Amino acid sequence: MREYVQISVSQYLEQILLHLKSHGYVKSKRGVRGGHILKELPNKIIIGNVIRDLEGPLAPMSCVSITAYEYCPLEDNNCLLKPLWALIRDQVAELLDNTTLKDLLEGNLYK
């Protein structure tokens, strides 16, 4: 059972690395001294961009998405939640767009 978990984790991490490579965050090298390395310095990698590239828009609801807006029938009735979702979107984007990989690595999340 333990080997299965290790293989599964390895395959999962490999898929993540492939996505990171396809978006230009890492590069790989084959061979004995091979592996993966960042293509940019950690202070140049913006976490908001990484999440958008890997997961899509940051908006919690598509009706407030800037890049992937989708109409919601509740908008016609002055949805009371839409301003809240927009505020959440803005706050999350602000935090993620001002956080770098270096910040995460060094634990500097409270600037």
Score class of each variant (00 low, 15 high):
E106N: 12
K111E: 09
S65E: 11
C72E: 08
M61R: 15
Q11W: 00
L38W: 02
L58H: 15
D97G: 03
V32W: 06
K82D: 05
Y4C: 02
L109F: 04
G56N: 11
K82A: 07
D97E: 15
G56K: 09
Q91P: 02
T100E: 10
L41H: 13
R52P: 08
N77M: 11
I46Y: 06
L84G: 04
K102C: 01
P60N: 13
Y71R: 12
L58Q: 08
A93N: 10
I66F: 01
P73W: 06
L74V: 10
N98W: 00
Y4W: 10
E40F: 14
Y69L: 14
P57M: 02
K29W: 00
K21N: 07
L84Q: 12
L81D: 05
E106T: 14
L38F: 05
V5K: 13
A93T: 15
P57S: 14
S22I: 04
Y25R: 08
D103M: 03
V9Q: 11
Y69V: 07
N43K: 15
W85E: 03
I66R: 15
E75K: 14
L80D: 11
V9S: 01
I45Q: 12
I7Y: 06
L84C: 02
I47L: 15
K29A: 06
V92D: 07
G31T: 02
E14I: 08
I46C: 04
L96M: 11
I37P: 00
S22N: 13
K39S: 13
